Every structure is written in C-alpha cells, then in structure tokens.
Computed example of a mutant assay.
Amino acid sequence: MIHEVDDALRELVRAELGAPDIEVVFDAPTRDWAARRNAPTVNLYLYDIREDLKRRSRGRQNVYDEQGTVVSRTLPPRYFKLSYLISAWTQRPEDEHRLLSSLLHCFLRHDALPAAGLGPELGLSGLPVPVTVALPPPEDRAFADVWSALGGELKPSLDLVVSAPVTVAPVYAAGPPVDDGGMVLNLGDLPEPPPPGPVGRAPVPRRRKR
C-alpha cells in the first residue's frame, strides 16, 4: 500500500509541475544527501505512519457473490495516515519558494489522490484516498524536530498527510442461505369459497301464536 501511495504522489507531482528536469525522490534529506544533490529536486520524505482513528468503523461487512448471496463477512477497512515532509531543492531560495507554491496549489486542488494513478491494491478497493496539506502539526510533534532528527538545517517545507485504506482483514465464512424447501404450501388444493349472498338486511324470524 505504501509503495502505491509513493507512485501515485510521484505521478501527480510530475503531471502538475510539467517540468521533466525536476527530480521527484523519497530520500531522507540529510546533510550528506543535500551535498550530493546536483539537480532541481522535490523531496517527499515519509517520516511518520499511524492509524487514522477518526476513520475507523465497527462491525462486519458482507461479501456477496455474483448472484447477490452473502458468502462471507469481513471487517471494514482501516485507514492509515502517511505523513510526508515535502521540500524543494534548487540553487536559489527564490526558485525553491516557487516550487513550494506550485506544490501547495497542486495538493489544494485535490482532496484525494486521482483514481487513475492508484495501484492495484488501492484501486480495486474502490475507496477514496484523502489528502490534506499544510495542517498544523500534532501537539506531540513539531516539524523542526523532524529536521533535527535528520541532522539537516531547517528548510521551508509542506506537511502532506495521505489517509490510505488497508483492506487486509480476517474473512469469516457465512452460513448457507436459508432453504424453505422443507415446507410446501399448495393453495390450489383448498376448496373455493362460496359466492357472497345478496346484500341486504337479514330476515327477522316471526313469533308463533299460542
């Protein structure tokens, strides 16, 4: 699933930027990596993976065959948040800022990853893959801490969060469908009801004279 999100992001960024000379990589932007870089680059570094608890559902889902019969039951998909630190690397800070602006516009135009760019696992699920960009960081983490952990200098960057569904779950076999062949009711054997009588008041019985 993670590699499919990587491929979808790479395809989206390249299509939106329209600049084949700009590299799109997923390397950790450390000091050594920055020293070896020799071309304009957009870095999408995956730095955090955690479950999106707000999207978790309860219960079980039915799985149907071609005839519409329930053949098994499974748990609903679970979403995981993939957090990417997006940075631009060029020779001039002004060019980096232009790249970041283009990237911000790119992800603001898409509430979810385009379905055409999804891989087989995400595409066959038929579920959206939501995307959020530049939201405030969680209280337990700051972007400066990420750069410090990488051993690099603080750079302007975008925080991109992709909520990807994972459909791998236990499958529980369903019982056979209910068969009503044990009881047969043939309405044709019943006698026909008598025709209704004339409409009116019933006759009043006369008293006998003594």
Rank of each mutant, 00 (worst) to 15 (best):
E96R: 01
P130H: 07
V5N: 01
G68C: 09
D32H: 05
V42H: 01
L158C: 08
F80R: 12
K209A: 15
E153W: 11
V42Q: 01
H3W: 13
K209E: 14
V63P: 04
R210L: 11
P77F: 05
E23R: 14
E66N: 03
L124D: 09
Q91M: 04
N186D: 15
P20Y: 09
P128Y: 00
L160P: 10
E153K: 12
H3L: 14
V184Y: 10
L122Q: 03
E153H: 07
L85C: 00
V166P: 00
Y84A: 03
P203S: 03
A116K: 08
H97L: 14
L154C: 09
L185T: 12
L135Q: 15
Y45V: 00
I2W: 00
A8W: 10
H97Q: 14
P128L: 05
V129F: 01
H110M: 04
G117K: 03
P191R: 04
G152W: 05
K81G: 08
W33H: 12
P170G: 05
D27G: 05
R36T: 15
L17I: 07
L17C: 06
P40E: 09
D65H: 06
A142H: 11
A169E: 08
D65T: 06
P20D: 13
R37H: 07
A164H: 05
L118E: 06
R14Q: 15
L122A: 02
V71Y: 06
V70P: 08
E23H: 13
A35Q: 13
S83D: 13
D189A: 10
L12A: 04
G119N: 09
V199H: 10
D140F: 09
R58Y: 08
P20K: 02
V70K: 09
V162L: 02
V13A: 03
P177A: 15
M1C: 11
S101A: 15
G182E: 11
R78K: 13
P195A: 12
A15G: 07
I2Q: 14
A35G: 04
M183Y: 12
D140N: 14
G197S: 02
Y64L: 15
D189W: 06
G188C: 07
V129W: 07
G175S: 14
L127S: 05
A142N: 09
S87Q: 02
C106P: 07
V162F: 02
R98Q: 14
L75K: 12
D7H: 12
L99H: 06
P93T: 09
E94K: 11
A164L: 07
L17V: 04
L127F: 00
N62T: 10
R73F: 04
L150P: 01
P136C: 03
P77L: 03
S163P: 10
S163R: 08
L187S: 13
D27H: 11
A28V: 02
L160V: 03
R207F: 09
R92Q: 13
R50M: 07
W89L: 09
V161D: 02
A15I: 01
S101R: 10
T132V: 13
Q67C: 01
A35K: 06
R55G: 08
L187R: 10
P198C: 02
L190Y: 14
D180Y: 15
P195R: 11
A173P: 15
E121F: 09
A34K: 04
S87Y: 03
E16W: 01
D179H: 10
D95K: 06
P193G: 03
F143A: 06
M1V: 12
L46R: 01
V25D: 07
